[in-house]
Each structure stands twice: as C-alpha cells, then as structure tokens.
Amino acid sequence: MAKRIDVADLDIYYGSFKAVENVTLAVEPRSVTAFIGPSGCGKSSVLRTLNRLHEVIPGAYITGKVLLDGEDIYSADVDPVNVRRTIGMVFQRPNPFPTMTIRENVTAGLTLDGARRSKAELEQVVEKSLRGANLWDEVKDRLDRPGAGLSGGQQQRLCIARAIAVEPQVLLMDEPCSALDPISTLAIEDLIEQLKLNFTIVIVTHNMQQAARVSETTAFFNLPAIGQPGRLVEIAPTEQIFSNPGEQATEDYISGRFG
C-alpha cells in the first residue's frame, strides 16, 4: 500500500524566481520523514511538488524528477488528478469545506471524483476514516452537523480523515499542528504514529521536538543567503541529525545558535 518517493535534482521556480535548487532525497515507505528548516527555506515548496500541487500556483514550475515507486509523476502522460489521489495532503490550517457536513467532508474526495458508490459503502468509508483519524467517538452522533462547528484540533483530524478516505499511498502534512494547542498536537502526533503503519508520511514542521518525536528520517533545509534559492543541507536518520549532525549549519539550527 505505501510507496517510496525519490526526488532527484529538483529545482523549484515561481515564475523567474528560483525558490529551491538541487534537492535529491529519498522517502522510505511506511515511515515518517520530517522536513525542518527556517521559514522561507523551501521545505513547504518541496512538499507541494510531491503531489503536483506546486503547479497550481500561476507561473510555478519545476525541473528535475520526482519518482513514486520508480514512476516519474511529472512525465507528460501522467494526470495530476491521479497523482493527488495517490498522494494526499493535510494543510497548515484546518480547512474543512464550509458548505458540507462532517459526513460530506469525509466523503468529499469519493463523491466528487465521479465514480458512483453505494450509500452503505460510503457509510463504511466514513466510519473507517474517522476511526483512522481518532475522531469517530467524538463525532459519531453528529455526522450531519457542519464540519466548521468542530474545535480546531477536531477540524484538523477531520481534514486527516478526509485525506485518508481516498486511500492514498502517501500522506503529506504541511505543519499540521502549528495552529493547534499542545493537547490537540499530541492527538495528531499519536495519530501519525498509527498512520505510519499504513502510509508513507512526509511532515513539514517548525517544531524540532515534534520532528524528533515522530520521525524516522529528518531532512534539514536552509537558505544560504537572502534572495538565494533554498537548499537541502542534509538528510539522515532523525537520531543522527539531533545527536551528531554532519553539517555545522544543522547543528547551529537545532541547537538554537542559528542566524
């Protein structure tokens, strides 16, 4: 079910501005890979190239290769819609669809992709996804209430349920806890622990303790100087990054001596 991702010689552009250059990394299946680094270093941009969401921004494009189990997701005959169905994403701010109920939010990816499904099948998906997101017990009695009525942490778990309902192979998370309180953050981190049994997870975080807690592998991105493109400084097992980093810049950043 889970797949590996290989990125080779990736350059990311916004129009004529080169935001990230020369990224090469591998994401192992059924593991959590964390992207850390200062703001503006391009870690979110790299994340967004992994499911071709980057190109949604007018003028944005990439060069280089992104391989999903050896298959180039940027080759000309690949449909970005199919890529995004295989690689799901959770965003920084919880954003359930405001016009939909909790149930409709979970099934949105299924009901809007065109294929017809029976009601019973959808019911199963709703329960399975909400259980998968540790939200079922809290919302099972109010599935027909608006998704926007939940608390922030619940909304974010609803967004995770929505993302895993389409059964992706990979789950991308762009700072999923930065808008949440510590208790909701703990709930999401517990959830990540469970999800990595089935999914390949890539998480962008500003919180280094979080990276240390949840990830097996950590990639450190940095900006060499203002106006220059961001770079991948190093990628290594999380333990090694936090105890014995290979680069001085990494050590400066994780020990707070940065800048």
Partner: peptide, 23 residues
C-alpha cells in the same frame, strides 16, 4: 474563498472543474 480550500480539494484528487463547481 481561501486558497487553502481550493488546494485541499485538488489535493484529494478532485478535478479542477469539480473543485470550482462543488467547493
């Protein structure tokens, strides 16, 4: 309409026209 909403719909593998029509 927040950009996030469009992107999270696209990220679910919902086609562009359906994102506009349904979200």
């Amino acid at each position: 309409v927040p950009r996030d909403l469009r992107e999270s719909s696209l990220a679910l593998g919902i086609p562009r026209w359906k994102t506009i029509l349904k979200v």
